[in-house]
């Protein structure tokens, strides 16, 4: 029997338009900042986010706490939600519940 090579077709996907993304500048201090809470709409997400905010607020005394909920746990926020976060927050915590 002769030995033959074999060629496999790669079955995986790739992002055809992938570009590198840059992180926004990180705040050096949270003191007095406006905190955003992005609830991903899963069960108990509100509980964990509010608990985190309460703990952080004792230390950093936020100027405001802005709470908003996504329309779907599985999909990105709609543009209106992102615009609200941009307008009303300096930092955002995105939370998952269950």
């Amino acid at each position: 029997m002769s030995l033959q090579s074999i060629s496999l077709v790669d079955p995986t996907g790739a992002d055809p338009g992938m570009t590198s993304l840059n992180l926004s500048p990180r705040p050096v201090d949270l003191k007095g900042k406006r905190l955003g809470l992005l609830d991903n709409s899963k069960a108990n997400s509100d509980i964990i986010l509010n608990a985190i905010a309460e703990v952080l607020n004792q230390q950093y005394e936020f100027a405001d706490i802005f709470y908003v909920q996504k329309h779907s746990a599985c999909l990105p926020p709609v543009p209106e939600i992102l615009a609200d976060l941009h307008r009303n927050c300096d930092v955002v915590i995105a939370g998952v519940g269950d």
């Binding site: 090579s5 074999i6 496999l8 790669d10």
Partner: peptide
């Protein structure tokens, strides 16, 4: 025009194990 990558194996490579 997108085409998948082709991986050429030599006879020493088990294709099932390669997957």
């Amino acid at each position: 025009d997108a085409r998948a990558l082709i991986h050429d194996l030599d006879y020493s490579q088990d294709p099932v194990e390669e997957c």
